[in-house]
Nucleic acid binder design. Structure first.
Lengths: 213, 213, 213, 213
DNA sequence: TATGAATGAGAGTTCATTCAT
DNA sequence: TATGAATGAACTCTCATTCAT
């Protein structure tokens, strides 16, 4: 959005400026993550967010267009972070242990703020095209990352027809999303629960049976 | 959504005061369901809700303590409605068709507003004991209904140890919840996806494998 | 203040309509006195008042035009009660004891709600002619009663010129009003304080000196 | 709330902001004085007050916590103003002229809003500790100022025992307060009335008589 | 006469946003 | 870039009042 780069006088001071700006942006985004988790998008005020970050409200408007822009930037950032992280090296494990390994990895993805952001983006999408794009980007990023993970399985599922494979991926995302939501609500959901969800989907036999129906 | 005519002078039925009050309450609750789905709890104003219901703002405060009370009442009502409805008669079906039948039933549970209400209740629970109780009631109701459904399977899962059975139930709730959330976000999730989630959990073999690990 | 006697259909004594109405009015006026003392005119709601009286808000509008009317009626009632009560028989006392007797009597006039009512009436007088009349009536009643009391002194002050006598009366009213106000505010004002105020005004010598200046 | 100035660029035009803020505060307090006098505390709306001051409603909340805070600040300000002003130099006058001089000074203390503020503070004192403190401060300030004035008399009253002196002071405050209240209600109370009240209290003979009883 | 559901104006307050500094 | 005073729209909630019962 606001890339600025007013680079006219490229002295040494300029890089410091850009760096400082980046630090400010990051601190506000971090504070926003906390505030949104705690009070929701509407419930978190700009004042609350900037105060957490140690700034006045003015700093916010020097770095973001408005509150919606903050949401969009935050969503982008979360997708990028999600996509960039290390995936578990499941290929080295025997087939029957893979679900557990994937489950453990997914559970580690906390806090599950992505979906809360997504819900807000969905609410605002009619008012702003950029929001719509951002929501799509967020969902595609999540689904794509899981799809990539499934592709690593090396056998069976990797060779499923595209449509069936997408069903599997969506089922995985749904299961993990739901489990995270339940945890967010205070329900005691352990890795075992997620394993249960995953094992059925990843299992070749179940897959066959499902594909056959 | 189902705007009963505002005809105050009903044809034949003269309503008692209590009945009229109940009608008003129900229409406001219906309107709130729509408004919350569309704009979220914070985003939906009392004015919006009462206008949808065909009343003035004051009618709301004549029937509810405040906005939080509305949320609590709505949650109760949804749980009750969920618990009271007909469960699919899966026992008449062959084993392999049961997941699909259950999936179809679960998909029918629209709109999937329960979890959105739950998220708001979770946000408010620290400020109000009644909210905390309401959230617990809501979750227990959902989990209990699914548990009851699982008990109807008549074989296999019904005889699992309590702990394992609870894991299965939570996994089912997580899967369906997540799928509904994805649909809410505009992702094209069909019954087939939910079947995939369910079949693995309900499947006896997968169950054995899961329990054995 | 709670007369209770919930028995709406009286067993023995069947009251006439007019009597019942008068009872309702009186209970509401009593409740209003308490509520105004506690929360002020604006701060006391019709609901609060009627609930204290054991009625619903509808009973209020069956007996009074509106809230302003209640204020007017209450003011009238207080003046009447003030005027009707027994005045202290100061003539039997020696001159130097009279101030104390009058002070004791004045202190007994609690709660000092008349002036609080007067302040509200003064605020509303521009909007309603009846209010203006009511305020005049209230003040004339108070001043008149004190004037009458002064007249009882039998000597000295009773024969002062009208203008000077009015000054004396106003000074008395001011002193007592102020003392009551201070008590209302929690200041520890005893009868001795009021005696001090009165003795100077009632005292013939002080009067002469005052008139001579 | 008390963000001490960032004090970075501390030398040039930097006072403007703090000064401007102070101007705004003062104008709102002035407007509030008028509005409260006219409509009372409950009757004066924030909108009315800020509009009189030439600001928008938001300016109010930028300078005060809430309406109660405004009341508290206003009370403090009035006490300070009262305490800081010049007292009449009564020592230069002959004894018998002192009451009149004091009366004239007291009458000059307009508008007599202090007691109206006090009544509101008394109403709110149970809900807020700061209000309680403010009420005490207000009353102590008024009583203290009058006590100081009495001390200036130089003879007689200045040497009374503490208890008796306090009675005298309270009597003075009561008299003046009551007279101001009557004026507020539209009663024609002149300086002569106040003189009457005061002369009796300040008078040495009356004092003796009072002390002797 | 008394009830209480419903009305709707208006209050206090919050908060995203602007802009002079 | 960052500050924070000021704006003003929008919100929740209160309450005097009406009216069908």
């Amino acid at each position: 959005m606001s890339q600025t780069d007013t680079g006219k006088h490229d002295v040494g001071a300029r890089r410091t400026r850009a760096e400082q700006r980046e630090v400010t942006r990051r601190r506000i985004l971090d504070a926003a993550t906390d505030a949104f988790t705690e009070h929701g998008f509407d419930g978190a005020s700009i004042d609350d967010i900037t105060a957490r970050a140690g700034f006045s409200r003015g700093a916010f408007y020097s770095n973001f267009d408005d509150k919606t822009d903050l949401l969009v930037q935050l969503a982008h950032r979360r997708v990028d972070a999600f996509a960039e992280q290390e995936l578990p090296d499941v290929l080295e494990l025997p087939l029957e242990e893979r679900p557990r390994a994937v489950a453990a990895w997914l559970v580690r993805q906390e806090p599950p703020i992505e979906m809360l952001l997504a819900v807000e983006l969905a609410r605002l999408r009619d008012e702003d095209d950029e929001v719509e794009a951002s929501l799509t980007h967020l969902l595609d990023g999540l689904i794509g990352a899981v799809d990539h993970l499934v592709g690593l399985q090396g056998s069976g599922l990797a060779q499923l027809p595209a449509a069936e494979r997408r069903e599997r991926v969506l089922a995985l995302v749904a299961g993990v999303t739901g489990a995270n939501l339940l945890r967010h609500l205070g329900v005691d959901v352990g890795p075992r629960t997620i394993e249960l969800v995953l094992s059925g989907i990843l299992d070749q036999d179940a897959a066959d049976r499902g594909a056959g129906s």
